[in-house]
Every structure is written in structure tokens, then in C-alpha cells.
Simulated scan of single mutants.
Amino acid sequence: MFKNISAALGFGGAKVDTILDRNEVLQGGLVSGYVKVIGGKVDQSIEAIIIKLMTKVKQETGDNIEFMDHVLAQYSISEAFNAAAGVEYRFDFEFDLHPEAPITTLAVSNNQCVVWLDTELDIDYAIDASDKDVIHVLPLPAIANIMSKLIEDKDLKLVKSDMESGTISMPGFTNESGAYQEIEFRKSSIFSRGELELSFAIKGDTLYGLAEIDRALRGDTYKRFDISINASEAEIDDLVDYLI
């Protein structure tokens, strides 16, 4: 009886550990690995193994800014099973990274974007065992090329990245996750002023984008665009010229 009560309180209960095949994943790329469950000191009934794809989203209330945990997607990777005491179980999984997961590998000091997997054991009448694993999200080549040209050809400097709460909508696309990444650039010259905030969204083979351009003395301008994720160098050059 004491062991059952301890397991319900989280002591001596089943343990969970998620092992990723790789922790660097291209936007929209395959996330794969396995979940290892080790039975505790007593048998326990596991209703499901749930993996949540998580990020942090900025919430502004008056003058206060908080970063709240936000679920981008959720996956159940097992049926109900009985975890016998001391027995180890393995559950393989794979899924495509949610296309609205933010890029986390930008070379900027003020990068507030993070992505991780939160793996939970759904156990009746007990504190769920859980495990957290960070995923480093790499930009698609087309996005990396766009940002590189903005920096190298248009004299912009990457200064900040975060996840904003809300919806962006444009012809052919509306985001579904309730959050979107905002990547901020500024003119690198101290003699120039101006900001560019970019949000990208992927749907199939199309890259959608929303740009907010702040030009000194001329106010804000918004530009929407779409381009193939396999766009040519010339098409990307044209897009960068359109933005700046």
C-alpha cells in the first residue's frame, strides 16, 4: 500500500525518457526517436504517452511582458498499457515538425525563441512523469538565403526574434497555432534609421511572408508575399528588392 501511495505522489513511479535521433531539425523536417519508459516500484496503468511540441510566446499586459508556455502540436504515441514494476519499454515515434514552429538557431543575442518536446505519461490517480527535450530548429535554405541577402546586400542587422501571440492572415494562408515568429532587423549604419520585422509561414511548397517596414519620417508599411520554398536565386533577389 505504501508503495502505491508513493507512486501516486511521484516517488518510485514509472520514469520516462525521450531520446531524439537528432536534436537539430530543419523547418517542417522529420522529428524522430523513441520514448523509454521504466516501470517503477509497483505496477502502474499508463493511459497514454503524450508528446507536446512546445514554445514560448510573448504576452503583453499593459507595461508587463511575460513569456508563456504554448502548445504548437500534440501527439499520442501509445495505446494504454500496464507498466510492470522494473520493466523497460520502448516506443518509437516520428512526425513532421509543425510548420509554424519558430527558427531557434538565428545568430542574434536577443533570441527569445525556443522549441522543446514535453513528454508525459498519462497515469490515473498519480502525478504524471515527464521529460523535456530541446529541439534546435534550422531555417529552410530559402529563408536563410533571404535573411543573408537582407544582411549582406541591404545593410541590415539581425537584432531580435520572438514568438508573438495572435494570428497572421494573407491570401492563401492563415496561421493555426495561435502564435507566429517575428524576426526584427535594423539598419546597421548609425547614420540610418529603419526597421524591418519579418514573419514567415510554410504551407506545402509555398513560403508565405508578412513584412512590417518602419521607415523614418514615412511611417509603417506592410507587405505580404509568397514564394516557392525552392525559389531560384533570381527570385529571392527580386523579393529582397521588393522588401527594401
Results as ranks from 00 to 15, higher is better:
Ser76Pro: 03
Gln59Phe: 08
Ser45Phe: 03
Gly39Cys: 06
Gly86Asn: 09
Ile51Leu: 13
Leu97Asp: 00
Leu72Asn: 13
Val71Pro: 01
Ile51Lys: 00
Thr61Gln: 07
Val25Thr: 10
His70Arg: 13
Pro99Leu: 06
Asn64Ser: 14
Met54Pro: 05
Ala48Arg: 10
Met68Asn: 15
Val57Glu: 05
Ala73Gly: 13
His98Met: 03
Tyr34Lys: 13
Gln27Pro: 06
Met68Ser: 08
Glu94Asp: 15
Glu88Pro: 12
Asp69Tyr: 06
Lys58Met: 13
Lys56His: 07
Ala48Thr: 02
Thr55Tyr: 07
Phe95Ala: 13
Val35Pro: 06
Gln74Ser: 15
Ile38Val: 14
Thr61His: 03
Asp69Arg: 11
Ala80Asn: 08
Ala84Ile: 12
Gly39Arg: 02
Gly62Asp: 02
Val25Phe: 00
Gln44Glu: 12
His98Glu: 12
Val87His: 09
Leu26Tyr: 03
Lys56Val: 06
Leu20Asp: 06
Gln44Arg: 05
Phe91Glu: 11
Glu100Met: 10
Lys58Glu: 13
Asn23Thr: 10
Tyr89Ala: 04
Lys58Val: 06
Thr55Pro: 07
Lys52Asn: 10
Met54Asp: 07
Glu60Pro: 04
Tyr89Asn: 11
Ala80Lys: 14
Ile77Asn: 08
Lys36Asn: 14
Val87Ser: 09
Lys58Gly: 01
Met54Val: 09
Gln74His: 05
Gly86Lys: 15
Phe93Asn: 08
Ala48Glu: 13
Asp92Leu: 11
Ala84Glu: 15
Tyr89Lys: 08
Gly40Ser: 01
Leu72Trp: 12
Gly40Gln: 00
Ile65Glu: 14
Ala84Gln: 15
Met54Lys: 09
Ala85Leu: 02
Val25Cys: 04
Asp69Ile: 03
Glu24Cys: 04
Ile38Asn: 05
Val71Ala: 06
Lys52Gly: 01
Asp63Met: 12
Glu100Asp: 14
Asp63Cys: 03
Ser45Arg: 03
Glu88Cys: 08
Val35Trp: 01
Glu79Arg: 12
